[in-house]
Write a protein that binds this DNA or RNA. Structure first.
Lengths: 213, 213
DNA sequence: CGTATTGGATAGTTATACTCTCTAATATTG
DNA sequence: CAATATTAGAGAGTATAACTATCCAATACG
């Protein structure tokens, strides 16, 4: 496949593909001469994944590169691969340090040790949880522990169903690529359903009618 | 409260507050002279909400303005307010039109009519759902209907618990502000828990160990 | 053989979210 | 009351992300 065919097959402009190549998001094709390179179906898959994460998942390209670098790192064993790749999805912006942050950290600590999940304490996802809880606290909203642990149960069940969608027999790289896509896109799915559920409940409480603009 | 005090109380630089004022995200303070304006605690609350949505929820300022404009629109009755405000959270980017999109639209249609939720068919959240499902389909991943409807149940239960946190006796504007904050921040909470749950399940399948970088 | 395409690099563009500077008027403080 | 600091409001400047366009020499293809 030449670059123009890759472009046509994916719907991504040639200029953008070249940009992704430059940025190391997409591996170079195999150059057959000074003006030709051949791209494989793996390139097409990779390109579609990049677009899915960027356009639908709102993941910045820099983090997508982190994810893909992890996937391409042959050194990482299969058991760490998914975790390492997932870790790249979250920003590493440090949380603001104040009372709310301290309390949120404690709440998260208690929740996770109560659940007994096997997660690394330095996981960026934990940082995200702490930041969300601290921010809620600063807005004067305290989430009761039982609501939080119910949320955790729901999230765990969702994750179980997600990972069941994976074909364990597929090649390692493909499994991880699919796992990443599933994680990000099912989060979008949840968010969409969550907002529609809010709308339904709000309709039940306050009456119906289509919100306009 | 003068602007410098508002800045100190919120941790947001004066220049940024002025920018928000210019952009219509924050209402002007009451001007008492040519060089003085007074800001109330409502301004502080509003400012904190803006930062929470922007920094933690990754909501672009343009959409935050849409949300706040809805909240400030006295015309809108309480029953439509939350929905209208929530609608502004989602982008209105039109979905790509192809077979995957058609199928995703049908799947969403079936799911929602089966659930019987009172949601407007033009809801942007439905667009988000369709885009996520279509993108999954393009990546060769088909979500079984029973997984989808289970996700919907989980999302609905989460939404119920969210809205129980609201104090129905509070003033109308505050209720909506809090509802928005809860929606966005609990989505972040779910995402964080979902990723940690994935890590837990992955550890169970592939063995443990802390993913490094 | 000549026109079109390609790889690779460099420069330019658009959008977002600030951040800085300026001015005249006013507030505060010694 | 004079010197210093602060403010509202507007405009311009900056940083970053994510493209998009242009160029050139070297092929590819009809």
């Amino acid at each position: 496949m030449r670059i123009s065919e890759l472009s046509r097959a994916s719907g991504v402009p040639v200029a953008t593909i070249k940009y992704y190549l430059r940025e190391g998001l997409l591996p170079r094709g195999e150059t057959t001469s000074a003006t030709q390179a051949v791209y494989s179906s793996a390139h097409l898959r990779r390109l579609r994944l990049i677009r899915a994460l960027a356009e639908v998942g709102d993941v910045p390209l820099a983090r997508i590169r982190g994810v893909l670098d992890a996937v391409d790192d042959e050194q990482i064993g299969p058991h760490l691969l998914l975790g390492t790749a997932l870790y790249q999805l979250d920003s590493d912006a440090p949380a603001e340090e104040d009372d709310s942050a301290d309390q949120a950290r404690q709440t998260a600590e208690r929740l996770l040790s109560g659940l007994g999940w096997r997660t690394y304490s330095g996981s960026p996802a934990r940082g995200r949880l702490v930041r969300a809880l601290a921010t809620l606290d600063r807005l004067g909203l305290t989430i009761p522990p039982e609501v939080l642990s119910r949320y955790a149960e729901l999230a765990h069940e969702a994750a179980e169903r997600d990972l069941e969608l994976l074909d364990a027999a597929a090649p390692r790289e493909e499994i991880v690529e699919r796992a990443i896509a599933i994680t990000v896109l099912m989060e979008q799915t949840f968010t969409a359903l969550h907002r529609m559920a809010q709308e339904d409940i709000s309709a039940g409480r306050f009456g119906t009618g289509a919100p306009g603009c």
